[in-house]
């Protein structure tokens, strides 16, 4: 009995104090004006939509806030692009490992996949920067072979950003795909092949429909992580690129406007969830299947 009480207490502590209440507090905070601590709870402290309004209309000038809305849109679209890119990169290898590889080979490949990911996000971004910087190895090669005379600004034109995000979340796409395809009975593929289906039809009609929940969960994870990522845009984005989480970051650490930061964070979270739900509905996958 005591053990049961301890278990319930642990889970209650987690779900309440580490998950539910903090979220709730963040939402509550976002409906408050930005006040110094002394005036909090005073007459100026009231429920307001100011912070949300500021996302659409710049507070002081009263003009439409294209900067922030644009950053939001860019973050979402770039994340979708990265998700699609990662799916394209990972699908063939996931299929190969799940259906064609021998167990021994698969184990080696798995280890090779995991080992680079013990190196943290920042250092991985750093390594890409060494490659992509104007003095970096790739520009050295391009200029050395005479393909270009002036270095290409990979970081400025956001190539670095896309590569960095894709690189950061390859595994997150790979494992759900692998798990989903792995449980597909090989005979189904053989049967389709016997019936004379060309290879692309086998994938379109047999493998992908079967692996749909896995594809959905991989895509959801990559999308959510990209949209919420901080390191890759900070270190690989161009100087003019504004990533939405960077704005949130600045509200906390540069402007010390927590309520507005909280509001923006909430906008990001809701925006992402709505998009994911819409996509899941579009492709007819239930949420339950996805998070299995």
């Amino acid at each position: 009995m005591l053990l049961g009480i301890i278990f319930i207490a642990l889970v209650a502590f987690w779900t309440l104090f580490l998950v539910a209440l903090p979220y709730l507090y963040m939402v509550v905070e976002s409906f408050h004006p930005n006040l110094p601590p002394i005036r909090r709870g005073g007459p100026d402290d009231f429920v307001t939509l100011t912070q949300y309004k500021s996302f659409f209309v710049t507070p002081n000038s009263g003009t439409v806030n294209w900067t922030h809305m644009g950053a939001f849109g860019f973050s979402i679209i770039a994340s979708i692009a990265v998700t699609a890119l990662n799916f394209a990169i990972c699908y063939p290898l996931a299929y190969y490992m799940a259906q064609a590889g021998t167990p021994q080979k698969v184990r080696t490949l798995m280890l090779c996949l995991i080992v680079p990911y013990w190196v943290n996000e920042i250092l991985r971004a750093f390594s890409l920067r060494l490659l992509l910087a104007s003095k970096g190895l790739i520009n050295q090669i391009l200029m050395g072979t005479g393909i270009t005379d002036v270095p290409i600004d990979f970081l400025g034109n956001n190539t670095g950003l896309y590569v960095g995000l894709s690189y950061a979340y390859l595994l997150v796409m790979m494992f759900p795909l692998y798990n989903a395809i792995e449980s597909l009975d090989r005979n189904q593929i053989e049967a389709a092949r016997d019936l004379g289906a060309p290879w692309w039809r086998i994938h379109k009609d047999v493998v992908i429909p079967y692996a749909k929940p896995g594809i959905a969960s991989g895509c959801t994870m990559v999308f959510m992580l990209s949209a919420g990522s901080l390191a890759a845009p900070q270190f690989l984005g161009g100087p003019r690129t504004l990533w939405f989480t960077a704005i949130v970051y600045d509200f906390f650490f540069q402007n010390f406007n927590w309520p507005r930061g909280a509001a923006y964070a909430f906008i990001l979270l809701t925006g992402c969830i709505i998009l994911v739900m819409a996509m899941l509905r579009l492709f007819k996958v239930s949420l339950g299947e996805t998070i299995k």
Partner: peptide
């Protein structure tokens, strides 16, 4: 079970920045 699962797994689907922000705001109070 479905609801319980959703609640317990939601931190995995929440962007890390949001977890950080909400933790600071809540625990500060």
């Amino acid at each position: 079970r479905g609801l319980y699962y959703l609640v317990t797994i939601s931190p995995l689907l929440t962007p890390g920045v949001i977890i950080g922000i909400s933790t600071v705001i809540f625990w500060k109070d």
